[in-house]
Amino acid sequence: MAIFAVAVVGNLIGLAVAFAMTSRSPALRRSASVYVTIIRNLPIFFLMLVTFFVLPQQLGIRIDKVYAFVGTLSIYAGAYLAEVYRGALIALPKGLREAGLAIGLTEGQTRIWVIIPVMVRNALPALSNNFISLFKDTSVAAAIAVPELTFYARQINNNTFRVIEVWSVCSLMYVAACYLIAAGLRYAERRLAIPH
C-alpha cells in the first residue's frame, strides 16, 4: 500500500540528505542539518495537518489526499532515514571510496556501485526498525480521512458500535503486519549480509 511508496521516496530523500550532510560544501551541510533537525522535532500529525490545510488554503497548492499523505510521510521519513544513513556513511572505511576512484569510477559511479550497497547492508537493522515505525505512522492518515486501516476501523466502529471487536482486530492486524514485516526484514538481512 502507501507504505511502499513512502519507503521508496523516503529512502531516496534520506540517502540524498545523508550525502548532503557529509559533503564538503558547508551550505549543503547546513541546509541538510536544518532540514533534519526541524523535521525530527515535529509531530507527524502536525505535518499532515499543515499539508492538508495550510498548503491548499494559503499557497493554493492542491494535491490529491493520498499523494499528499505519501509526500508528507516521505519527507518525514527522509529526516529519520538521513540520520541512519549518515551514521552508516561515517562508519565506512575511508579506503572504500578511494578504492572506487582508483579503479577509474567517477564520484557518482563510486557512490552508486560501491558505497551505497555497503552502506545499505550495514544499516539494514536500523532501517528495519524505521520501516516498522513508519508503517505504524501510516495510521495517522486516518485522522485526515485517507482510506487506510485505521480509517476503516473508525468507520466500522461508528457504524456498528462493536467497539471491542473492532479495535482488537484493528490492533491485531497492525501487530501481525509488524511481526510479518519484521520477520521478512530479518530474512532479507540474513540473505543480504556480507559474508565474513
Binding site: 495510521s139 486516518a142 511481526y179
Partner: peptide, 20 residues
C-alpha cells in the same frame, strides 16, 4: 509485543472507545 506493534493512534482510539 501487543502495545509495541500497535500505532499510537490506534492505541488512543482503542482506549477511548473500548474503555467506555
Amino acid at each position: 509485543e501487543y502495545v509495541r506493534g500497535t500505532p499510537v493512534f490506534v492505541l488512543i482510539l482503542a482506549c477511548y472507545y473500548v474503555l467506555s
